[in-house]
């Protein structure tokens, strides 16, 4: 494992910890999209089915379990916690997730490495992860004012993807025969989804002010 991959994973982990801490400390999930969190849960469940039949490393197994558990913990807080669930912007978080799930599934059926249940679900998880942040970005656009923690959460998620891109370039030049087109193309799309957000995040940071999105 190279440094870019490790930094990417750690940034991903940190983004989830930031979100959980925000929810726990402020007892509020205002500005957080439940739809995006549920999509991530679907992504992790469909991708990490291999926990049952393949072992890569202790690091891999532990990280997969952490991602699964934290995804469901966040959803539990937003749906079931008696204080936190009241702060959820249900009326604003109206993105139609089937518009993401169905096309991703159809694409996974059409473009995959192998026509098997686990392989199609794995491919589906790759496609779905690329667009899973969209409900969150739409919610952000609607509520306009972005609180610091939500902003940092999304910034770290975007950074994790950017670090994975660097990791792929590094692996391409250091590992003979290493290529994975499905992952590369979806990962590039996924990183591009964050570009607009990055622009406003950096601009707010440079001007030392709260982040605001244009209408």
């Amino acid at each position: 494992m190279n440094i870019f991959r490790l930094a990417g994973d750690m940034t991903h982990l940190l983004s989830i910890i930031v979100l959980l801490l925000k929810i726990q400390a402020t007892k509020s999930c205002a500005g957080v999209s439940l739809k995006t969190q549920e999509l991530y849960a679907v992504v992790f469940v469909t991708r990490y089915l291999d926990l049952f039949y393949s072992f890569i490393s202790l690091y891999n197994t532990v990280m997969k379990i952490i991602f699964l558990l934290t995804a469901f913990t966040i959803i539990w807080y937003m749906r079931k916690h008696k204080v936190v669930c009241q702060t959820y912007d249900k009326e604003q978080d109206t993105f139609r997730v089937l518009f993401l799930i169905v096309p991703c599934f159809v694409l996974a059926l059409l473009v995959n490495h192998e026509m098997s249940v686990t392989e199609v679900l794995w491919t589906f998880s790759i496609y779905l992860e690329a667009v899973a942040i969209l409900p969150q970005l739409v919610l952000l656009q609607r509520t306009k004012n972005v609180d610091n923690l939500t902003g940092n959460y999304i910034f770290m998620l975007g950074s994790y993807r950017a670090l994975y891109l660097v990791n792929w370039v590094y692996r391409y030049f250091t590992e003979l025969g290493y290529r994975q087109w499905i992952v590369w193309v979806s990962g590039t799309v996924q990183t591009c989804v964050y570009l607009d957000f990055f622009y406003y995040y950096v601009q707010a940071w440079r001007n030392n002010e709260r982040m605001k999105l244009p209408g």
Partner: peptide, 10 residues
């Protein structure tokens, strides 16, 4: 199977 990449990334 051939063509299926090693899934060592998260």
């Amino acid at each position: 199977a051939a063509g299926v990449c090693a899934k060592d990334e998260l």
